[in-house]
């Protein structure tokens, strides 16, 4: 009985070998291609990372912090309404 099982597994492996090969090849191909793309991306970015990071951290950091703080930025309409209020309600009293 154990022999039977073994042979069955082997048989299955043989039976699906072609399809399995195509599958492997496809996945492998995609993996290689995407790996290459990623590698290319990484490699092409290497010379600039220092400067880019420095720039990003310097320029964008406060922006990020402000977003974390969630101070409410006024919408365009809100600003216009406010300015309109300032202008229309201005009154000079000596």
């Amino acid at each position: 009985m154990p022999e039977d099982k073994e042979s069955e597994v082997k048989r299955e492996g043989v039976d699906f070998s072609k399809r399995a090969f195509i599958k492997t090849a496809l996945i492998g191909g995609i993996a290689v291609a995407s790996g290459a793309v990623i590698a290319k991306k990484i490699v092409s970015n290497i010379p600039n990372t220092g400067l880019t990071n420095a720039s990003v951290s310097d320029e964008l950091q406060q922006d990020r912090v402000m977003k974390d703080k969630e101070f409410v930025v006024m919408s365009k309409e809100e600003k216009d309404r406010m300015v309109q209020m300032f202008v229309s309600e201005y009154k000079y009293t000596a």
């Binding site: 101070f71 409410v72 930025v73 006024m74 600003k79 406010m82 300015v83």
Partner: peptide, 15 residues
């Protein structure tokens, strides 16, 4: 100030 209100992202403290 008005130009900034027109063009920039503005917020007020404790609005």
């Amino acid at each position: 100030v008005r130009k900034i209100l027109d063009r920039k992202k503005v917020f007020r403290l404790k609005a």
